[in-house]
């Protein structure tokens, strides 16, 4: 495969630069939170990871729809690439949220709607990857992946609503149902700037990783193609 195209190199450079800046803003520029202390700094990347997860799964659903309409395999490559990145960042989101919760709510885990929804989302897309793994024919794999990607994405908001109603009706045992209630904080302007900058940076990270992952998918298909040719010779 040819070397990375110039645009991708530029994008990679920008992303690395942004990431270094984001680290600076999170650790030095943003003040230490008055109540929670240093652990609050996790918040910036925690939310940004969740954002990347949501965007990634949205991209998967859209790419799946376009694939079904156009039957061009490149859209399926986008869909898988995006799921993989989404799963990684949703995992980061859940793990970092759990670590943040420990000192603040005194527990590693609360049945907060957002946390539970994120976890179910993770399970949905792990199931997506398992579905694909179980199918050998690439066209069928792409079709089923597209359908499941859309079904999964439609189910996420309904799951969120259902858990939200569940929490408001049920007595809350540990911590608070809503992190906005306890563990909430007023963001100083510098915090807000660091937060927005983290979102921007992670969006760039997503785009860069997606590009590389799509190229990886294409290379993998080329190798498969060559192997097929070898076997038929």
């Amino acid at each position: 495969m040819e070397a990375a195209p110039r645009n991708l190199k530029i994008l990679t450079g920008i992303t690395i630069g942004l990431f270094v800046l984001a680290l600076y803003m999170v650790f030095i520029y943003a003040p230490r939170e008055a109540v929670m202390g240093d652990v609050q700094r996790v918040f910036y990347f925690h939310v940004a990871s969740g954002w990347v997860g949501a965007v990634a799964f949205l991209v998967t659903a859209i790419a799946g729809g376009v694939y079904l309409a156009k039957r061009d395999r490149k859209w399926d490559r986008v869909a898988v690439a995006s799921v993989e990145i989404g799963v990684v960042f949703t995992f980061i989101n859940i793990a970092s949220g759990s670590i943040w919760a420990r000192p603040i709510w005194n527990t590693w885990w609360t049945w907060d709607p957002r946390l539970v929804t994120a976890t179910i989302m993770l399970l949905l897309y792990v199931a997506y990857l398992m579905l694909r793994q179980g199918i050998d024919d690439p066209d069928r794999r792409a079709r089923f992946g597209s359908v499941y990607g859309i079904v999964a994405f439609v189910s996420v908001p309904i799951t969120f609503v259902s858990i939200r109603i569940f929490r408001t009706i049920h007595p809350v045992i540990i911590g608070s149902g809503d992190p906005a209630a306890e563990g909430a904080f007023d963001m100083t302007p510098r915090m807000l700037q660091a937060f927005m900058f983290s979102l921007l940076t992670f969006t760039f990270i997503y785009a860069t990783l997606l590009w590389y992952r799509i190229r990886l998918g294409r290379l993998s298909e080329e190798v498969e193609e060559r192997k097929m040719e070898m076997m038929s010779v």
């Binding site: 109540v35 929670m36 202390g37 652990v39 996790v42 990684v88 793990a95 670590i99 420990r102 000192p103």
Partner: peptide, 20 residues
């Protein structure tokens, strides 16, 4: 005074950056 939560912050970033 702010709570002493430096170790949790460190742990959090190890997980975030480590996974990435």
């Amino acid at each position: 005074a702010p709570a002493e939560t430096f170790s949790f912050m460190a742990f959090g970033f190890i997980v975030i950056l480590g996974t990435m």
